[in-house]
Amino acid sequence: MTTIKQLSIFIENKSGTLIKVLNLLSDAKIQIIASTIADTQDYGIYRVLCSAPREAFTILKENGINVQLTDVLAIAIEDEPGKAATAINALSDAGVNILYMYSFLWQGKGVLVMRTDKSDEAMQVIARKSIILLDEDNFKN
């Protein structure tokens, strides 16, 4: 049972700031699996699941980017109506709150990536309900 390392990148809410990050990842041949940007008026946080999070972290940091490795959970569900509701319901019943979440399709399954306020409880629920938890090896190149 494990969490996945996600890159959380602090970027200015201004044109041209995202491309610098993307170019650095591209030059290092790091593949982006999924990503999302949340923004305020002043700044944004770019959250990235990638093929080599630790390597990416080092590269970005060396280039002066404000970046953090954040532990997130990635669960795989059937690509069918109602499956997300079932999974989230289980977490909700256990009193786990989701701080943020994004989703993508991967190998025919739906993947929900989330940061919760109670990681340990969340993982217990996932194990109990036999939900598929993905680890970093799933996303390696």
Partner: peptide, 10 residues
């Protein structure tokens, strides 16, 4: 400027 991104929580 932020020295370190110490959280990804808005």
């Amino acid at each position: 400027e932020l020295e370190e991104l110490f959280t990804d929580d808005f």
